[in-house]
């Protein structure tokens, strides 16, 4: 137990948490945007996976940042495709989302084997690049501030993104439109807001943000692509949106919470070798389920307290 505590209260653990959380934060923000616009985006998982592979392949032949941009574009394009099917062709958003997920699972393996010349498991033969780490050597020995040392550039960008999304949602007219469209589309429609356009952009933004998450995953957390490497992060992100009460700051903390548990599941196998590793890896998912149950109970209580019958 002592070992675990020492491990948890170390700078290394904090860096691990941030590393594990960053893809989740991006995907969560993507989920938040589309959820607030009224479309539950269950395709975050597939979008991340496709973006991860895209950025790995592109970065093998171009600078790292082109790789990241390629991942973002891949996500955004998937968002646009979903918008086309859902908004123009009136397909059910959940089914379209699962379509993207299934395409991602099979499609990435297929594309991977084409890109690597037959390898269906990893991109180990591709010289893909990594996102630079922001090193602040002058802070390395300062207590507390040394926590800022050694994170991915995208982790810093993630913080910026959350603040920007908050500002967009609650301080700009377009944020008002987006929230109005999600909650009661008839109102913005009557006010002359183009509802379909707002929803399309929300899905595109959602895809772009998941794409960033995918890029971080395959160009920092791991360098290179492994099949199904997103491992349910897209769905955890959906849980984080709800757990964070559909608010960017809340969702950020929810994503960080899941990051902590993922980091734990990385640290714990070394300390508790008698617990099967598979069991430890289920922790983030168990926590998701528990968190959602707790959240739901709390929401019910709050409604009761306000005298609203369900």
């Amino acid at each position: 137990m002592i070992e675990l505590l020492t491990a948890v209260f170390s700078v290394t653990f904090f860096v691990t948490v941030i590393r594990a959380s960053t893809p989740l934060v991006f995907a969560t923000m993507g989920g938040l945007i589309s959820d607030l616009s009224g479309a539950l985006n269950v395709a975050l998982e597939g979008m991340m996976l496709i973006a991860a592979l895209t950025s790995v392949i592109v970065s093998a032949y171009a600078p790292w940042w082109v790789g990241v941009l390629a991942g973002v574009s891949a996500g955004a394009m998937l968002g646009a495709v979903m918008a086309l099917f859902h908004l123009r062709l009136k397909a059910d958003i959940i089914l379209v989302g699962f379509g993207v997920n299934i395409l991602a699972t099979g499609g990435t393996v297929f594309a991977l084997s084409l890109a690597t010349g037959g390898d269906k498991g990893t991109s180990i033969n591709l010289p893909s690049k990594a996102i630079p780490r922001v090193n602040l050597p002058f802070l390395e020995d300062v207590p507390v501030l040394n926590l800022l040392h050694g994170h991915s550039l995208l982790s810093w960008f993630a913080v910026l993104t959350v603040v920007a999304i908050w500002y967009f949602l609650y301080r700009t007219p377009w944020g008002l439109w987006l929230r109005g469209v999600g909650e009661y589309p008839a109102a913005p429609e009557a006010a002359g807001v183009n509802v379909r356009q707002v929803r399309t952009w929300a899905l595109v933004a959602s895809g772009a943000l998941s794409g960033l998450g995918g890029a971080q995953l395959a160009m920092f957390n791991y360098v290179g692509f492994t099949r199904d490497m997103t491992a349910g992060r897209g769905f955890i992100a959906l849980g984080a949106v709800l757990l964070g009460a559909r608010h960017p700051i809340g969702a950020l903390f929810a994503a960080l919470l899941f990051g902590v548990f993922e980091a734990l599941s990385i640290v714990m196998p070394n300390l508790f070798s008698w617990i099967p590793g598979e069991l430890i890896q289920t922790i983030p998912f168990v926590v998701t389920v528990l968190a959602l149950i707790l959240l739901s109970i709390r929401a019910q209580r709050a409604l009761k307290a306000r005298g609203v019958a369900n």
Partner: peptide, 20 residues
């Protein structure tokens, strides 16, 4: 007859929505 107001918005947000 059927109002088109976003329930969680404040009154002023509903009034200006679309022409803020």
């Amino acid at each position: 007859q059927h109002f088109s107001l976003v329930p969680s918005f404040t009154v002023y947000e509903n009034v200006v929505l679309g022409s803020e």
